[in-house]
Amino acid sequence: MKDWDDVVAFALTLPDTVVATHYGGPAIKVASNGRAFLSMSREPGSFVLSIDFDTKEMLLESDPDTFWQTSHYEGWPGLLVRYASTDPDRVHAMIERARDQAAARKPSKSRKKA
Rank of each mutant, 00 (worst) to 15 (best):
residue 29 K to E: 11
residue 5 D to M: 06
residue 34 G to N: 07
residue 49 L to R: 03
residue 37 F to L: 02
residue 86 T to V: 00
residue 80 L to N: 05
residue 112 K to E: 14
residue 57 E to N: 03
residue 70 T to Y: 04
residue 12 L to D: 09
residue 113 K to P: 06
residue 90 R to Y: 02
residue 74 E to L: 09
residue 31 A to H: 11
residue 15 P to K: 15
residue 69 Q to R: 13
residue 30 V to F: 02
residue 22 H to T: 03
residue 11 A to D: 09
residue 68 W to C: 06
residue 59 L to F: 01
residue 65 D to P: 00
residue 21 T to Y: 00
residue 88 P to L: 02
residue 110 S to G: 05
residue 106 K to V: 11
residue 110 S to F: 00
residue 101 Q to D: 11
residue 49 L to V: 02
residue 95 I to C: 07
residue 12 L to G: 14
residue 74 E to K: 08
residue 30 V to R: 10
residue 17 T to D: 09
residue 84 A to T: 01
residue 50 S to T: 10
residue 97 R to Q: 14
residue 2 K to A: 00
residue 59 L to I: 02
residue 85 S to T: 07
residue 13 T to W: 06
residue 99 R to K: 08
residue 96 E to M: 12
residue 80 L to T: 06
residue 13 T to M: 15
residue 63 D to C: 00
residue 84 A to S: 07
residue 70 T to D: 11
residue 44 P to C: 03
residue 75 G to A: 04
residue 92 H to E: 13
residue 111 R to P: 01
residue 91 V to R: 05
residue 76 W to C: 05
residue 43 E to A: 05
residue 85 S to I: 00
residue 82 R to Y: 00
residue 29 K to G: 02
residue 43 E to T: 12
residue 57 E to Q: 09
residue 24 G to N: 08
residue 15 P to N: 15
residue 80 L to R: 07
residue 21 T to P: 00
residue 97 R to C: 07
residue 19 V to A: 10
residue 66 T to K: 02
residue 102 A to T: 08
residue 50 S to E: 07
residue 72 H to V: 05
residue 66 T to I: 04
residue 107 P to W: 11
residue 22 H to E: 07
residue 3 D to F: 08
residue 71 S to L: 14
residue 12 L to W: 10
residue 113 K to H: 13
residue 69 Q to M: 12
residue 9 A to D: 15
residue 9 A to I: 12
residue 5 D to W: 11
residue 10 F to I: 13
residue 20 A to M: 00
residue 7 V to A: 13
residue 106 K to N: 13
residue 72 H to W: 06
residue 74 E to H: 09
residue 75 G to L: 02
residue 19 V to S: 12
residue 67 F to I: 02
residue 97 R to K: 12
residue 102 A to H: 03
residue 49 L to K: 06
residue 109 K to P: 03
residue 95 I to F: 06
residue 25 G to R: 14
residue 16 D to V: 15
residue 113 K to G: 13
residue 31 A to C: 09
residue 77 P to N: 06
residue 105 R to D: 14
residue 101 Q to N: 10
residue 68 W to N: 09
residue 56 K to E: 05
residue 59 L to V: 00
residue 54 D to G: 04
residue 101 Q to H: 10
residue 3 D to L: 08
residue 51 I to V: 10
residue 13 T to H: 14
residue 53 F to V: 08
residue 108 S to L: 08
residue 53 F to A: 10
residue 99 R to I: 04
residue 4 W to L: 11
residue 64 P to Y: 00
residue 23 Y to V: 10
residue 51 I to C: 02
residue 103 A to E: 13
residue 76 W to P: 03
residue 3 D to A: 10
residue 38 L to T: 04
residue 62 S to A: 07
residue 36 A to W: 03
residue 88 P to N: 04
residue 110 S to V: 04
residue 44 P to T: 11
residue 27 A to E: 11
residue 7 V to T: 14
residue 54 D to M: 04
residue 100 D to N: 15
residue 98 A to C: 05
residue 82 R to M: 05
residue 67 F to G: 01
residue 68 W to D: 09
residue 103 A to V: 14
residue 44 P to D: 11
residue 73 Y to L: 13
residue 18 V to D: 11
residue 53 F to K: 07
residue 54 D to E: 12
residue 4 W to I: 14
residue 45 G to V: 10
residue 14 L to A: 15
residue 81 V to G: 03
residue 76 W to V: 11
residue 13 T to K: 15
residue 45 G to D: 08
residue 69 Q to W: 00
residue 8 V to A: 15
residue 114 A to G: 11
residue 20 A to T: 03
residue 50 S to W: 06
residue 36 A to F: 05
